[in-house]
Design a protein around this nucleic acid. Structure first.
Lengths: 246, 246
DNA sequence: GCAAAAGTGTTGGAAATACACCCATGT
DNA sequence: ACATGGGTGTATTTCCAACACTTTTGC
């Protein structure tokens, strides 16, 4: 129970001039973006990493990041940095979270915004391979430089959640895929095994798969049917997103 | 199909010195935090707003925000700013998203990180009332200053999602509440009507409500039973969070 | 013919929905 | 007595989980 409150109407008011001076002078901070690019290949979920630039983290792997320019939109910086580091440009990036503890970067105060994406490894060729840029199986991702392990963990968790709520996974597969491919994808991302028949039923009942009347080729077993995802139908369907559950 | 890729192993490498110089000099940006504080009162969802400081937005309402100090953790800044603006300190803040278009603030380049909370209006007394700080019914929140309408919308959407997945709502109610109170809360946050009997069944079947064997007092109708939420039991129970659904 | 994976159906239980009546209280 | 909202039960349906056998292909 707190008493004696006062209303001093001007106490927290700042004029535009005061704010401008704060913005222009002492209160500025370096801002960076880190890109977490997930891909799917050889039935495994992978992520793009480079070797850290810094001696302090010699030998360690790190995410793809750089500073944001003062005259650049945050989202634009993410696309620029991804392009700069990998050559990739046809990639949709999504902001995940911002990390801002004071000592997270050895070069001084740097707040970083994490952006995440999911791409089809086969459809996107890496054009820049500086700092040993390449795909790493997520099962072998440990002990990254800076606080990048934490950032990576956060992004992976969010990915696992989002992939269950939205049809993100289809971007990771070839245009034509088998149900087995699809199941492998979900199992890789979620790190679990699923019942094949129920998985099948689930997806057929959603009714977003188009049967291409084609078969797999050159597989050492009975070939499966090929499908593609009906994005158009998905977009049209309403969300009935009410369902309390915890 | 892109060809002719080169590997120039040092192209993107920066030394610590280079990064330090970038961090210390030209590449810094003002960073702010905005707090979106939701509360529940009179069976309505509300949010704390103040009058905008700036002439440009004269008469408009705005979120609770200020600049982050260069030697201050991002989360700490959020708590400090909330405390400064409202006097509130026993409040859990959660980061929602970061907004960083170049021209979002008239005083110059300011990137802002939105933090969100849900509190019980009755349990938290506002001790500072500068800039006409007070609770606004969310149904009347329109046309906020800066890009605050967009930030508000994003936070409300995320709140609606999260409240269905986690027992956040209980923090908004008195310690002892009736099922009607609880349903009003969900209806207010989600903006929908629900079937009373099914709502009841839902919550009883979750088995997280403790029957206090007390009744409402002074209501102009048959008094309902009072309950409290069993947070302990909730924390212990495992998440079986697999369920593809879109 | 053998190995490997595709393809297929049923059943039981759990949860979601829709719906209608009586009860306790204050006025 | 009546208005207001509390409290309850049931039938239907939908969804999910568990489970085993036959088919097709490559080798």
């Amino acid at each position: 129970m707190i008493t004696g409150q006062k209303t001093t109407p001007t106490k927290n008011i700042k004029t535009l001039q005061v704010i401008q001076s704060e913005v222009e002078n002492s209160n500025r901070i370096a801002l960076s973006v880190d890109c977490i690019i997930f891909g799917f290949d050889e039935a495994k979920l992978k992520v793009l990493l480079i070797r850290s630039d810094l001696k302090k983290y010699a030998g360690k792997w790190s995410l793809l990041g750089d500073l944001v320019f003062p005259n650049e939109d945050l989202d634009a910086a993410a696309y620029r940095i991804l392009k700069q580091r990998t050559g990739l440009s046809d990639v949709y990036l999504e902001q995940v979270s911002t990390f801002g503890t004071v000592n997270r970067h050895p070069a001084g105060r740097v707040v970083t915004v994490a952006y995440c994406s999911l791409i089809n490894v086969q459809h996107h060729k890496l054009n820049i391979l500086d700092n040993e840029l390449h795909w790493h199986d997520i099962k072998n991702v440990t002990d990254l430089a800076f606080d990048h392990q934490q950032i990576f963990d956060t992004c992976l968790q969010q990915l696992q959640k989002r992939v269950q709520e939205h049809p993100l996974g289809f971007n990771l597969l070839p245009k034509k895929f088998s149900l087995r491919d699809l199941q492998n994808l979900y199992e890789a991302i979620l790190g679990i095994k699923m019942d094949r028949r129920n998985f099948r039923k689930k997806f057929f009942s959603m009714d977003f798969l188009i049967d291409l009347n084609e078969m797999e080729q050159d597989v050492p077993h009975r070939p499966g049917k090929l499908y593609k995802f009906n994005f158009e139908k998905y977009e049209k369907r309403k969300k009935k997103w009410i369902g309390i559950d915890f």
